[in-house]
């Protein structure tokens, strides 16, 4: 494999990871959505590049889907939800920026320490992609944990998904990637736009999940 193939794939993966860090410290909802859109765009580029170097046409479909759904449709729709519901523009995080970043860096270290020793038989490209992907997954989890807002959690969940897609496209010959992407997209779209936001709004006038938690069935 020419080294340029490796370099570009590696760089795109690293940029996706960088965007995950950017997601961690954003305060404003609209910028969280923007960063997520940017991450998905880079992910689409990474998928297309993998499609090119692996000579796997179905990855172009993956790239196209990621670009249209996650970089355009979902962010636009979420922005409309925010405008329509006039939600507070900034959101609380459970941890400050400093501790969140330290936690993020330790998660990346953890995933590198976890992945690299167990993958001696795999090509360097795949194994480093996998370490990056696992980091994105863990950072997505961290984003979900540190956000108390429904939209923040959904974005965290979708960025976690981006990590999964990054892992899947990096593995040569992986079947069913397109199907999985569609399954995830259906899941997110169905839940978010169909049901939850409007009903949460109806009941509480807010998307802040702390308000929800007062309704725990047992605490009556």
């Amino acid at each position: 494999m020419p080294s340029i193939h490796y370099d570009i794939a590696h760089m795109l993966g690293a940029v996706v990871l960088l965007m995950s860090f950017a997601l961690l410290y954003q305060r404003r909802l609209s910028s969280i959505i923007q960063v997520f859109a940017a991450q998905s765009t880079v992910l689409a580029a990474a998928a297309a590049w993998q499609g090119y170097i692996q000579d796997a046409p179905h990855l172009y479909i993956t790239a196209l889907l990621a670009l249209s759904m996650k970089a355009i449709v979902i962010p636009v729709a979420l922005n409309r939800v925010i405008q329509k519901l006039r939600i507070e523009r900034t959101v609380d995080t459970a941890l400050g920026v400093g501790p969140t970043m330290i936690a993020g860096v330790s998660l990346v270290t953890l995933s590198i320490l976890l992945v690299l020793p167990v993958t001696p038989d795999v090509t360097a490209l795949t194994r480093e992609d996998l370490a990056l992907a696992l980091s994105v997954v863990l950072l997505g989890l961290l984003t979900m944990i540190t956000r108390r807002n429904a939209i923040g959690q959904v974005i965290g969940f979708m960025s976690l998904e981006n990590g999964l897609i990054l892992a899947a496209i990096g593995v040569e010959g992986m079947p069913l990637i397109v199907e999985m992407l569609v399954a995830f997209a259906v899941m997110v779209a169905f839940i978010i736009f169909g049901i939850f936001f409007f009903h949460i709004r109806e009941r509480f006038d807010t998307l802040d999940l702390r308000t929800l938690e007062d309704f725990r069935g047992e605490r009556r």
């Binding site: 979900m144 429904a150 959690q153 969940f157 899941m187 839940i191 049901i195 939850f196 009903h199 949460i200 009941r203 509480f204 999940l209 929800l212 938690e213 309704f215 725990r216 069935g217």
Partner: peptide
Amino acid sequence: PAAIEAAWKYFILCG
């Protein structure tokens, strides 16, 4: 409200 909270928790955790 309780049903929506339950469903949200279910969705996030199982997701």
